[in-house]
Design a protein around this nucleic acid. Sequence first.
DNA 1: TATAAAAGTTAAGTATGCTTAACAAATATA
DNA 2: TATATTTGTTAAGCATACTTAACTTTTATA
Lengths: 221, 221
Amino acid sequence: MLSNSEENYLKALLHLTLERGQAETGTNELAASLEIKPAAVSLMLKKLKEKNLVLYKKYGGISLTSVGKKAAIEVIRKHRLWETFLCEKLDFSWSEVHTVAEQLEHIQSKKLIDELDKFLGFPKVDPHGEPIPSAKGELDFRSKITLSEAEIKKSYIVLGVKDDSSEFLEYVDKMECKIGTVIKILSVQPFDESLEVVMGNKKKMVTKKFAQSIFVKKKKA
Amino acid sequence: MLSNSEENYLKALLHLTLERGQAETGTNELAASLEIKPAAVSLMLKKLKEKNLVLYKKYGGISLTSVGKKAAIEVIRKHRLWETFLCEKLDFSWSEVHTVAEQLEHIQSKKLIDELDKFLGFPKVDPHGEPIPSAKGELDFRSKITLSEAEIKKSYIVLGVKDDSSEFLEYVDKMECKIGTVIKILSVQPFDESLEVVMGNKKKMVTKKFAQSIFVKKKKA
DNA sequence: TATAAAAGTTAAGTATGCTTAACAAATATA
DNA sequence: TATATTTGTTAAGCATACTTAACTTTTATA
């Protein structure tokens, strides 16, 4: 049995390795991700290593063992299923689910999570468009799609941004593009790959770079 | 904000005072209820007293303040709503819900519990027939009803027993009365208040004393 | 390649919430 | 009422999981 804290370390490690595409993580990086001091990470790593959950040598890189990775995926599965539950069944908004799901993800009951999965109809993605690992621990590693990957002439809903620098966010704001805004690609210019889109019922042109930084999900018919 | 542990103390205190009908509880009694040592209770009581959650003097009785009682009721509300959710929506059986609900009751989110309440249709009682406190903290202090309080010619479902001595349990067994068994009172004998019942499709006579020790809930139409 | 900066570790200390052991107060019984 | 029993408290210690401060190793740069 893992403590909440241990589960959070494993989850953070998996997130870091997936997001950065690197196999190994550093102590400081992990500490920043967990919002704790590096010293605490050093101590915990010793414990996780003894439990065979991480591979790690003093002053060396940190990575998950297969056992650790499986546990991390299970936590992410729980997190995303709860988020789905909160949004779909309990009228939670997109932005409210995270903190509650951070608590719910640590509830220990295999039956609970499998029944919840069934109750929700075995969803493939959570409300943010992130893939939900299956009961067997299979995670579809494709991250959520961006506008640049969307199909032409189908409606998508804005989920968030890939780049959260203030310059970009202000730009997005100026474009009247918000979470929930409906976007449809009308055409792509061969010249510079600019996209002609309908965004919130207005026709606009956006650059390829812009489209690559907006996360979207397909709108339900 | 209360810790899980603090919430458990308050909940146990409320349960003890309700079940025993006494306003005050002792350290040993509370320790037994929480399955910890009395020494730990002494330490925690100091903390709860400082937080204005319990009334207590060294070597004296323990009772909840109105603030403490309100908090305890809130925990019980959460516990019973989660139990209802697990049974009604997730195919959990009567006996599986308790341990999971013990974890879920500590999730901190007012919105979560109010939305859950709404989702469940504002249930008045949990799957064990225990009353669910309202969002305002009103608890119907009547405990679950026994067979002796049931209406004539309506169907009830056996929830459990009031007396769990082995003599009684064996007697109940012999009567082919189990959790889930459907019971309907056909008549009550004025002479000795014996009840003529249909229990699991068989007509039987049971004593008043027997009927007073069987918890039931109304069967849904 | 010497050294400064960054990254990581260890040691000592804190808070929570338990434990056991020793002790004190209250209650029951002879 | 003296004493034995029960009940409750305090003190010291443990585990978890953090912190800060001092230190070590690695890496980057002059």
